[in-house]
Design a protein around this nucleic acid. Sequence first.
DNA 1: CTGTTAGCGCATTCAA
DNA 2: TTGAATGCGCTAACAG
Lengths: 335, 335
Amino acid sequence: MPATIHDVAKRAGVGIGTVSSVLNNSRPVNEATRQKVLSAVDELDFIPNPSGRRLSMGKTHTIAVVIPFFTLASQVERLRGVMSVIAESDYDINLFAVETVPQRNRIFQTVPRRGRVDGLLIFSLNPTEADLRRIRRQDIPTVLVETSHPDLPHIFLDDVVGAQTAVKHLIELGHRKIGYISDHLDDPFGTNLSRNRYLGYGRALEAAGIPLNPDYQRQGWHSREQGRLMTFEMLNLPDPPTAIFAFSDEFALGVLEAARDLNVDVPGDLSVIGYDDIELARFVQLTTVRQHLIESGIQGVELLFEAINTPDIIPTPRQMSTELVIRATTAPPAR
Amino acid sequence: MPATIHDVAKRAGVGIGTVSSVLNNSRPVNEATRQKVLSAVDELDFIPNPSGRRLSMGKTHTIAVVIPFFTLASQVERLRGVMSVIAESDYDINLFAVETVPQRNRIFQTVPRRGRVDGLLIFSLNPTEADLRRIRRQDIPTVLVETSHPDLPHIFLDDVVGAQTAVKHLIELGHRKIGYISDHLDDPFGTNLSRNRYLGYGRALEAAGIPLNPDYQRQGWHSREQGRLMTFEMLNLPDPPTAIFAFSDEFALGVLEAARDLNVDVPGDLSVIGYDDIELARFVQLTTVRQHLIESGIQGVELLFEAINTPDIIPTPRQMSTELVIRATTAPPAR
DNA sequence: CTGTTAGCGCATTCAA
DNA sequence: TTGAATGCGCTAACAG
C-alpha cells in the first residue's frame, strides 16, 4: 500500500539506484534528475521502509532503554534526559520496563542482539556474566547508568560516598539514633544500590563511633507506601530514632507521610534525608542527596552514541558527582 | 556475526523452511527433525532477526506512543498503564516525546507509516486533517487518548463536565471569586484541553449567576513554576480570588507553593482544586478531578490491539468517567 | 552520471 | 513431511 522505492523510480523515470542515491546523498546526481526524483518522492509521500533499510544496512537506528522500577520518579527523570537527546538524533528508542525477575531475564536474553538494536542503555541493573557474554558475542554497544562494570562503559555514581555524606550530615547535626530505610539489601535483580548506600551509612556511623542498631534498619519494596509502613514500625520503637536516612526520595516521602500521620514534627522531632533529588523533593523541601538524574540520562546516551560510532573503542566511564542538598527536613535533634 | 536461519539449518542438517516452520509452528514437522532444529537453535543462541521477519511479513510488531509534555506526571502515569500491557504482549514500543511544534509535525509526518509501526497511540494531541489523511492512506490503526475525533477510536474524557464539577464544588462551598489557571486556551499544538476545561469553568459560574472576571484568569506554559507565578499575580490583586481551579495538578502544586510563599493558608484563605489526580495529589492532600490516568493508558492500548487485530472494523470509542476527589485543599471561604 | 543486480534474513509458496 | 526458490524494500557494488 505505501509507495516503495520502485514506485518512485518509475514515476521519476529513473532507476532505483538513483532514487537511493538522491535520498542518501550517497553519490553525485545530476541536478535535473535529482529534482525529478525529489518531486516524485514528494508526490508519493515516500519515506523508505525502515525494515528494508535496516536489513540492507545491518543497522537498526534504534536503541533500547532498559528501565527497572519504572514507577519511580527518579527513573522517569533519567529517561527524560535520554529522550531529550534522542529527539535531536535520528534514532528511535525502544522502551523496556522491567518489573519482575523473569521479565528481566527475558529482556537481557532477547534484546541485546545485532539486528534488533544498535545499542543498549541499561539503568540501575547489573548484567550477569552470562548476559555479558551475549553482549560481547553480539558485539553490541552497551552503557550502564547508575551501576558499573569494569568491561562496560558506564555512568558511575558513588553511592557509598553519597550515603556517607548524608549520614555524616545527620551526625554533625547531633543525631546518634539514625535509621536506614531501604530496598532489600540483596534485591532479586542483583542490584547493589541498597547495599552500597547501606555501606555508606555504616561507614559514617563507624567513623563517629556509633554502633549499628538492627532495630533502626528496615527493608521493603520500593514505594512510598512501604516507606510509610517501615517508618511506622520504627517510630513505634521504645527508643525511636531521631533521624531517618531513606534509600530514595520515594521512601523519604513515605517517611514524611508517616511522620505527619503520627503527628511527629519534621524536622523538630525527626530529621529526614532522602536520595536522588527528584523534582518533587524541592517541592516538599526535602533534604536529600542529589543525583543529577536528567544529566545522567543525557550522558548515558552520549556515551552510548560514542560507543556506537567508534567501534573497537570502549568509551571511558564517566563519574558523576553527588551532592548533599540541605533543605527543611533536617535539623538538630530535640535534645 | 549473529547466527542466521541458514546457520541453524546447516547445523541441524535441514532446510531453512523447516527451521522457520519449527520456530513459527507454521506447518507440521516430524518430531525428530523438530528436536534437531530446536537444539541447533539453542546451541547457536539463535533468535530471528526482526528486520528480516518484518520485511517478509509486512508487520513490525511495534507500536508507537506519541506523548506531549513528557515532563508531566500525568503523561508518565498514562505511559505506565501502556507499559504494563505491552510487557505482557510481544510488541515493542517506540516512544516519541513531543516538546515543540516542529517536532510534533515531523513525528506526525514520518511515524504513521506501514512498515514503520503497526499502530499508533497518541496522547492528548489532535491530528490535523492532513495527518488524518495520511493515517487513512497508510491505513494504520490509530488510537487517541484524552482527545477525540469522530473517525478515530479514542478514549474520551469529558473535560467540560470534569471542570464544571470541580468549579461547582467550589461554588457550593460558598466561593464566588474563583480563579482559573491554565495552559494557553489556544495552545500551539492545537490541543483543546485548556479550552474545554475553561468551558466547564464558565458553565459552572454561569449556572450560579457569577460573571466571568478576566482578572481571575491566567494562562501559561505547563509547569509548576508557571502555576506559582500566575498565582502570585492573582493573589496580589486588590480583590484576590478565594479559590483557584487549576487546569492540572501540576499547576495546582504551583498554586500551593505560591500560597505557602505568601503565607496564605490553604484551605483557610484559599481553596485549591486541581485536575488529573496524579499520584502526588494524594500525598499533598489535593482536592482534584480524577482522570484514571493509568487505566486510560491500559484501555488505550487495548483499543489499539483491537484495531490492529480486526482490520476494517474501527473499535468503538470508550468513555472514561471523571470524578471529583475531595481532599484537604478546599473549604468554605473565610467570610 | 546512472541503470542493473546481488544480497541483507526471513516467511512462504511450490515441488517433490 | 521437507527442501528449494521467490520476494518483502532497500543499499551498495558493479557495469556501463
